[in-house]
Design a protein around this nucleic acid. Structure first.
Length: 195
DNA sequence: CGAATGATATACT
DNA sequence: GTATATCATTCGA
């Protein structure tokens, strides 16, 4: 059974709960003429204005973070360190800059295309190991920021994969040391045994 | 462990 | 309008 996640999934105000539920879901991207699918195994929640690690902390609204302030159900893609594209799913209603960063996944379909984009020949965990690599393998770029996840070229499917609570690790986020105490929040979710 | 690399935010003139 | 500091990272040594 497969079904595409609908808008009401993204509109809830529990961004941490959504991050947890996205584990095991399938991220699909039809970019550059090719279709790729990946099972989401690692996510991170960014709780907008109350979260120092978020670009939108304190309700800061800029041209770059604009998509996060929009309605849930769209993509927010940001170029980080001049090299890496990071893919986020915007959640909550318009005006609440919540988002879920997709940090890792496992190839499901379109593997050849991912290998080609990463210039690799074998599938290993470095293919989708990390937010920058994952976005590159899926062909996601900043061009895709603001794209709708309902009816756009990027969407998320539910394949009926259930990740048991025992298989979920919640922990502090990485790479956000500058956020001080907020970097310690257990907003990071990893699905064990799927990777 | 350290460099690469470029858009963006912020603080200036 | 122009300048500089900073970054939700990765790869290679």
């Amino acid at each position: 059974m497969t079904s595409k996640l609908q808008k009401n999934f993204y509109l809830r105000d529990d961004v941490v709960g959504i991050s947890r539920e996205l584990l095991g879901k399938v991220l699909c991207a039809k970019t550059n003429g090719g279709l790729t699918k990946t099972i989401i195994t690692e996510t991170e929640a960014y709780a907008g204005e109350i979260d120092k690690a978020s670009h939108a902390y304190g309700g800061k609204r800029t041209k770059r973070t604009e998509p996060m302030f929009g309605e849930g159900g769209i993509a927010y893609v940001y170029l980080c360190y001049g090299i890496h594209h990071l893919f986020n799913v915007v959640t909550n209603k318009a005006g609440s800059p919540h988002a879920v960063l997709i940090r890792g996944g496992k190839p499901l379909s379109g593997t050849d295309l991912m290998l080609k984009r990463r210039k690799k020949t074998v599938v290993d965990k470095s293919l989708l190991g990390g937010p920058g690599s994952l976005a590159r393998a899926l062909g996601i770029t900043t061009e895709n920021t603001g794209t709708s996840l309902i009816g756009g070229s990027i969407w998320i499917e539910d394949h009926g994969i259930v990740i048991d609570d025992d298989a979920v690790t919640a922990g502090p986020r990485v790479g956000v040391d500058y956020a001080g105490a907020d970097a310690e929040l257990p907003y990071r979710f990893i699905a064990k045994g799927v990777q």
